[in-house]
């Protein structure tokens, strides 16, 4: 075996080989440090992204990721795990980031009665993109290691659809007899509603709460409630869209084109008594929001294009590898 040594020539070839490989990888947008997490890519959409039609063909442009969910068993209350996977897709149109979630749930659950819980879903971003936040977690105590959560609830979707603050007691219990509600118009007796608790507000404009947290138990309303979306249940599956403007209110994670960050997903099945920490939850995925904007010859990450790119990358990587081998293994020049 020849002893390996680095001549001047090889020294030049080695960094060159690495440079080729690195450029290829950067073009493909893959950060080799994060490559062990599943990746959700949000390409720039070509065409309008509908906020009312969740089955629009624009979503064919977004590669889907089947994200594994598991029970939350890090902190009390523990539970969930009944939903095994959620399919995630993402798009942006230069103005807004759209995330589409889809999962199987045989019953459409709204929080109606004392023992009934509603279906829900959420996405979670580190508040400071790039700051590592432990998985399955609600952020960390340090100020720059918090999380931003968008939580959609089926019951709020219903509120908007029915234009009601909540299902009336009379509708829930038709045989009930009440002769009088004193002070019915005095809001103070609607307690939580009167203090503008997001869970109770009478006229919802969005079915999604914008929340922040800095570890378990600290979840709080974000100052702006500017996350919107829509959820539809069809044939035993929920499909939920969540979206927000990419322009960045202070203190919220930057989700603008070109951003690389993380996202985690959670789903609650009301029929199983899921709520709070009792949820089916994923660990963090990588989220890449594509750099180019729509209509400017941006990269379209369809399946065919992805395959072509992979072949091209493989070819280029092979060339780069040969360069490296040559630099290292070629017998030293005299």
């Amino acid at each position: 075996m020849k002893r390996l040594g680095l001549t001047r020539g090889r020294r030049a070839a080695l960094p060159l080989g690495l440079l080729v490989a690195a450029v290829l990888l950067a073009v493909a947008g893959v950060n080799p440090v994060r490559s062990q997490n599943p990746l959700l890519v949000a390409p720039a959409a070509s065409g309008k992204v509908s906020t009312t039609n969740l089955y629009s063909s624009v979503w064919d442009q977004a590669p889907s990721v089947d994200v594994t969910l598991s029970m939350q068993n890090v902190t009390n209350p523990m539970g969930g795990g009944e939903v095994a996977t959620v399919r995630a897709r993402a798009l942006h149109d230069g103005k807004r980031l759209y995330i589409l979630l889809e999962w199987g749930d045989s019953t459409r659950d709204l929080t109606l009665g004392l023992t009934q819980y509603g279906d829900a879903a959420a996405v979670e971003f580190p508040r400071t993109p790039g700051k590592t936040v432990p998985s399955f977690c609600m952020g960390d105590v340090a100020p720059d290691r918090g999380v931003n959560i968008w939580q959609w609830r089926a019951v709020w979707q219903e509120d908007i659809a029915t234009k009601q603050a909540s299902a009336s007691i009379q509708a829930l219990h038709p045989d009930m007899q009440v002769d009088l509600y004193p002070f019915r118009n005095d809001p103070v007796y609607m307690t939580a509603r009167d203090v503008n608790n997001l869970v109770s507000i009478p006229a919802r404009t969005t079915p999604i709460d914008n929340l922040v947290a800095n570890q378990f138990g600290t979840l709080t309303d974000a100052p702006q409630q500017d996350v919107h979306g829509l959820g539809e249940w069809r044939d035993g599956r929920w499909r939920v869209l969540l979206y927000r403007d990419m322009t960045q209110p202070a203190g919220m994670p930057s989700l603008s084109p070109g951003t690389t960050t993380n996202v985690a997903l959670a789903v609650w099945d009301g029929a199983r008594g899921n709520r709070d920490g009792m949820k089916s939850v994923s660990s963090f995925l990588d989220l890449q929001i594509a750099a180019r904007t729509a209509g400017g010859g941006g990269l379209h990450w369809g399946a065919g294009q992805t395959l072509a790119l992979l072949i091209g990358m493989f070819g280029a990587a092979t060339v780069g590898l040969f360069v490296l081998i040559y630099a290292v293994v070629r017998p030293p020049e005299r």
Binding site: Q170, P174, D175, M176, Q177, V178, D179
Partner: peptide, 8 residues
């Protein structure tokens, strides 16, 4: 006044 007639 509201409510249905209560059944036995």
């Amino acid at each position: 006044m509201q409510g249905a007639r209560k059944s036995y």
